[in-house]
């Protein structure tokens, strides 16, 4: 059997991704996580001196704290198996990527293991975030200087 015939057969036999169901589960999971985030935000706005704009920071930190507990007790991977991108896209997924790597590499010591591997998965997000933000901000600053656009 040649490669092409095999590849056709492989595509027939391998189960199709249940796209509709996966999208629904991602929507539900991500939606719930964001609704919880909204609740946390209100908490900071009512009980502390935060505004709608500034409450984002403590909210993100709190969500990552929750992600730490769920990751540590082995629940986050279960949520992820159900929710797919619904648990990966929110900042809790970013937290999970860093926290799981930190837990995993504890056996190689705190410096080489935890410190050295914490950004193993999440590092690329930071790299691309920073670089794209730099490019975008640079272009915009230059455009403003030449008076093409305003701030």
């Amino acid at each position: 059997m040649d490669r092409q015939a095999y590849s056709q057969m492989e595509q027939q036999v391998t189960p199709k991704v249940p796209l509709g169901l996966n999208l629904m589960k991602a929507f539900l999971t991500g939606g719930i996580i964001c609704a919880i985030g909204e609740g946390v935000m209100y908490f900071y706005m009512y009980f502390f001196d935060f505004t709608e704009r500034t409450a984002g920071n403590p909210t993100v930190a709190t969500m990552i704290f929750i992600a730490m507990l769920l990751t540590g007790f082995g629940k986050y991977k279960r949520i992820a198996q159900f929710g797919g991108a619904g648990s990966a896209v929110p900042v809790t997924g970013f937290g999970n990527a860093m926290i799981s790597a930190a837990i995993e590499h504890r056996t190689e010591g705190y410096v080489l293991g935890v410190g050295g591997n914490m950004f193993k998965l999440a590092g690329s997000v930071i790299v691309f975030g920073v670089f794209s933000a730099f490019v975008v901000a640079l272009i915009k600053t230059i455009l403003v200087k030449f008076g093409v656009v305003g701030w």
Binding site: S100, A101, H105, L121
Partner: peptide, 8 residues
């Protein structure tokens, strides 16, 4: 991935 990393 690390054991506790969530992916589908």
């Amino acid at each position: 991935y690390p054991i506790e990393y969530g992916f589908q």
